[in-house]
């Protein structure tokens, strides 16, 4: 019984420690992001890795999400004779919810895992220690460009996801199911408001910070991870953990952000 409480206490302390570490990590990363000198090239490089290289997967998943929304929306709306509102249904679903969430999940899988593994390997091969010993701030040199790239890339990728999704919905609704082209776009034009775009933008911005924060900090503290943080196995385990945690947090934060922004 005592052993049970000992283990419980140790686990609670570990989790509290981990949350504290992640908080401090976020603080240092934001501070180092705001402090000069500002270097453009590392940020552009990260925008390429996180943003540009995610474009294909965003386009691919976006078009199919839009097509599925077109199919499902048509089936549901036709029951009420409101097929003309398909454009609104597809656009609002994408702009307010699916666009930011799906784009963030895709970026987590593609770029978040890579970020976590990269920083984790830098940690276990003493490259982070080497930076510190050279009096180069690892937060400034390694993490800050990724944060800026995440903040810039996520809203743009979300916008791309929304546009291609709306076109996917158009292809199914207008091309396959015969809805009037004008009705598809005019209903969208009438019903989508600035508040909807704003909500999607704020969400994508928050998800961008969330993904980079969780994935970077998990890699950065791989050596402090419980249950053997060192070696290839340690990096692989924290990378999986980072992707799962980011995905769960995206969905959790989506609910909270929706409830605040609605």
């Amino acid at each position: 019984m005592i052993r049970f409480f000992e283990k419980l206490g140790a686990d609670v302390l570990y989790q509290v420690n981990q949350i504290g570490r992640m908080g401090i990590f976020l603080f240092y990363s934001v501070v180092s992001m705001l402090m000069p000198p500002y270097k453009v090239f590392p940020v552009v490089k990260q925008i390429y890795h996180i943003g540009a290289r995610s474009v294909f997967v965003i386009l691919f998943t976006g078009v199919f999400t839009g097509m599925v929304l077109g199919l499902q929306g048509y089936n549901t709306l036709s029951k009420f004779g409101a097929e003309g509102l398909l454009g609104t249904a597809v656009a609002l679903s994408l702009i307010r919810e699916l666009g930011p969430v799906m784009a963030a999940l895709m970026v987590t899988g593609r770029a978040g895992s890579a970020i976590c593994a990269e920083i984790g390997i830098m940690r276990i091969s003493e490259q982070i220690d080497a930076l510190e010993c050279m009096a180069i701030d690892p937060h400034k040199y390694v993490v800050a460009p990724k944060f800026i790239a995440g903040i810039v890339s996520l809203p743009l990728l979300t916008a791309l996801f929304n546009v291609i999704g709306i076109l996917g919905g158009y292809a199914v609704g207008v091309g396959l199911l015969g809805i009037n082209e004008g009705a598809y776009f005019s209903s969208m034009y009438n019903d989508v408001e600035f508040g909807d775009i704003y909500m999607g933008f704020v969400k994508s911005l928050c998800f961008g910070v969330l993904i980079i924060w969780i994935c970077s900090s998990k890699g950065y503290y791989v050596h402090l991870t419980k249950g053997g943080g060192f070696g290839a196995e340690g990096v692989s385990s924290v990378t999986t953990n980072a992707v799962v945690m980011s995905s769960v947090c995206i969905l959790l934060f989506d609910y909270f952000l929706t409830s605040v922004l609605l």
């Binding site: 240092y28 390997i121 830098m122 091969s125 003493e126 490259q127 220690d129 080497a130 510190e132 010993c133 050279m134 009096a135 701030d137």
Partner: peptide
């Protein structure tokens, strides 16, 4: 953190595995 960086500015380190940026 800042003071540590100032002190480390006078250091050079050769790590066991060289710790080069791969």
């Amino acid at each position: 953190k800042r003071e540590l960086r100032a002190i480390r500015a006078g250091f050079g380190v050769l790590f066991q595995n060289a710790a080069l940026f791969d």
